[in-house]
Structures are given as structure tokens and as C-alpha cells.
Write a protein that binds this DNA or RNA. Structure first.
Length: 341
DNA sequence: AAGTCGTGGCA
DNA sequence: TTGCCAAGACT
């Protein structure tokens, strides 16, 4: 339940299911998770997004071992102290896995209750959020949390949907005040969205004559933290993609390359900005590594790239490379033949 | 309180 | 193409 609820944060069930099956097969117990390395954990998580969830999950497994004797606590307040476990996940695990009588309030529940009681204001922020939490607790029939929580979430997911809710099929259409008011989809109130910035990024697939490719590891804590990627960086105003590539490779790694060809631009959308990747196939020329604490990097065989956790956008580039005619003349071995899974 | 943090499906 | 959003947590 803990793993599945974590995977389901901001993620659709259909998306999470195959990841869940694969994860539980590889790491079936808290102890197995506690002993697993971040490399394996992130590889299992690759493609699901919000990678802090995976890092927190393995950290929390170690805490369960050390602080709770290897037993996942049943008390929501204790669950809540584990990294990555917030109010919703604590309540979901406590109620569904352990039968505790606590209301789990997720986005579905907020929407259902906001409509049922016509609660004004953005549902995720006070004072509406407090009203909705109190309402959820008050409407929870004692002794039924395990089924009740899932029923309300399911109602929100299948019937009381964000747009065009199926009120005709709703078991609580009668007392629903938003429906009575005529516009159920007006609840909960939307918060205004900002227009997302768009960045252009140059990316280098840098190959050596021995068929190895350069990758670096993104710092923990930030965007795509802990994942490996092809080097590169933001294209500044007035700069060509190729100029940006040479500048970034030199600045970050002291890496000099010869560009052998360009791949098509790869569009990719993150949560709060969009990027267009401009990938270049490059031949390694020289490298004078920077002194100090740069980010980790290494040369890996092209066919080993699928063993490293990488961002989705990098996999897109790799897939494009395989279907292009841009692969360079080979001296000894292919560069990179990598067949990502 | 408001920003950060992925990805894929859909209109 | 663009915006919206989906079983949130953390800073």
C-alpha cells in the first residue's frame, strides 16, 4: 500500500500499475528496499517522474528498519514522520492497510466534498482545505474507513470528474449543493495559472573511438535529481545551439568535442516550464577536468546506457538517434548502439 | 504562501 | 500547439 500510494501521487492508476508490478517483483520487502542502491531504485522509477518520491521511499525504508524495527507503523502520526509520507499517504496507508479510522483526503475527495457542500475557495488552501478536511472526517462512518476512503476517491475519479461530471450516475446527486446551483464543474475554484517559460537547451552525445559515451549525474535535491544525462545546457539569447553546446561542455567539464551532426529538436514539457532540446552527435577531442567539486561523470559503453536511470527526454534523443542516419563512421565499435528498453 | 518537482493523456 | 490535470510532499 505504501509503495502504491507513493506511486499514485499525482499519477494515474494506469500509468503506475506496470511500475508497481516491476517494483514489487524486484523489491518485495522493506528490508530489500532498505538495502537497494539509489541506482537500482531510480532505474525502477525511471519514467514515473517526481523522482524525490523514489529517493524518499528508500530513505524511509531505512528509517523503518532503524526506528520501527523493520515494521511499518500503523499509526498515521508515526507514518507521517517518514520522508515522502504526507497527510494523505499516511491516512491512506493507515486506513487501507491497517484498518485505522482516518479520512484520507486527496484531490478526488476535495473535489467531491467541495461540490457536495458548495465550498468556496481553492480546495488546496485554507480556509477551504480545513473545511474539507473537517467535512471528510465528519462524513466518515465509524469502522468503515478502509472501504469508505477508496469509495469516495473512486467516485471522484469515475463520476464526479473535474470536467463534465456524470451527475446522472452519482449516488449523492440528491444532496449535492453544487448540482443544485446548476454548475457542479465550477467547484472547486481553480487557482490562476502562470504562463510557463520556454527554454532551449543544447545537448551533446559525445562519443569516443572506443564506443563509450559521456554522461553526467544530476545533483540530488533538484530537478531530475540523481539521474544520469547527456551533458549540455541552456542556450542563451543570441547564441546558436552549437555555440551553447561547446560553451557548456567546456565550462562544466573542460570537455572539447567536434560536432558531427545534429538531430531533430526534441520538445519536452515539465511541470512549470517547457524545453526544446537540440541534440548534437559529437566526437570526443580532449578533456581537462575542472578542479573542485563538479558533478559526477563517466564514459559508458553505448549498449550499457539502458542500465542507468535517465530522464525521459534523454531517452527520446536516444530513440531518435537509433532511427536516424546520423550514426558516424565507426573506428572500432558502434557509437552508441544503445537500445534503451 | 507560493514554488518546486515529471510525465502522459486529452481536448 | 497549448493548456489542463492526475490517489501530493517538501521547502
Amino acid at each position: 500500500m505504501w509503495v502504491s500510494e507513493t506511486m499514485l501521487q499525482q499519477t494515474r492508476v494506469d500509468t503506475a500499475v506496470p511500475y508497481y508490478e516491476r517494483w514489487m517483483a524486484a523489491l518485495p520487502t522493506v528490508d530489500a528496499l532498505a538495502r537497494a542502491g539509489d541506482e537500482q531504485v531510480l532505474r525502477l522509477w525511471e519514467g514515473l517522474g517526481y523522482y524525490a518520491r523514489a529517493r524518499n521511499l528508500s530513505r524511509a525504508a531505512r528509517e523503518v528498519r532503524e526506528r520501527f524495527g523493520g515494521r511499518i507503523p500503523a499509526d498515521p502520526d508515526q507514518l507521517r514522520t517518514l520522508p515522502g509520507v504526507g497527510a494523505y499517504t499516511a491516512a491512506a496507508v493507515a486506513s487501507i492497510a491497517f484498518g485505522r479510522d482516518v479520512a484520507a483526503v486527496d484531490g478526488n475527495v476535495r473535489r467531491v466534498l467541495a461540490r457536495l457542500a458548495a465550498v468556496a475557495g481553492p480546495a488546496r488552501r485554507p480556509p477551504a482545505s480545513r473545511t474539507l478536511e473537517a467535512l471528510a472526517a465528519a462524513l466518515l462512518p465509524p469502522g468503515t474507513a478502509r472501504v469508505h476512503n477508496q469509495a469516495v476517491m473512486e467516485l471522484g475519479a469515475l463520476v464526479c470528474t473535474p470536467r463534465d461530471p456524470a451527475c446522472a450516475a452519482c449516488p449523492v446527486a440528491g444532496p449535492c449543493r453544487a448540482r443544485a446551483a446548476g454548475r457542479p464543474e465550477a467547484y472547486p475554484e481553480r487557482t490562476q495559472k502562470k504562463t510557463v517559460p520556454h527554454h532551449r537547451v543544447a545537448v551533446g552525445i559525445v562519443c569516443r573511438d572506443d564506443g563509450r559515451v559521456f554522461i553526467d549525474r544530476r545533483p540530488y535535491g533538484g530537478l531530475l535529481g540523481g539521474l544520469w544525462e547527456f551533458p549540455g545546457g541552456k542556450i542563451e539569447p543570441g547564441e546558436t545551439p552549437e555555440d551553447a553546446l561547446h560553451r557548456e561542455l567546456d565550462e562544466e567539464f573542460g570537455l572539447r568535442v567536434a560536432v558531427e551532426g545534429a538531430l531533430g529538436p526534441v520538445p519536452h514539457a515539465y511541470t512549470h516550464f517547457r524545453v526544446t532540446l537540440h541534440p548534437f552527435l559529437c566526437r570526443f577531442a580532449s578533456m581537462v577536468p575542472r578542479a573542485g567539486e563538479g558533478r559526477p561523470w563517466q564514459w559508458v559503453p553505448g549498449d550499457a546506457l539502458d542500465r542507468y536511470p535517465m530522464p525521459r527526454a534523454n531517452r527520446k534523443i536516444l530513440a531518435q538517434l537509433r532511427t536516424s542516419n546520423l550514426e558516424p563512421e565507426r573506428k572500432r565499435s558502434p557509437c552508441p548502439p544503445g537500445s534503451p528498453t
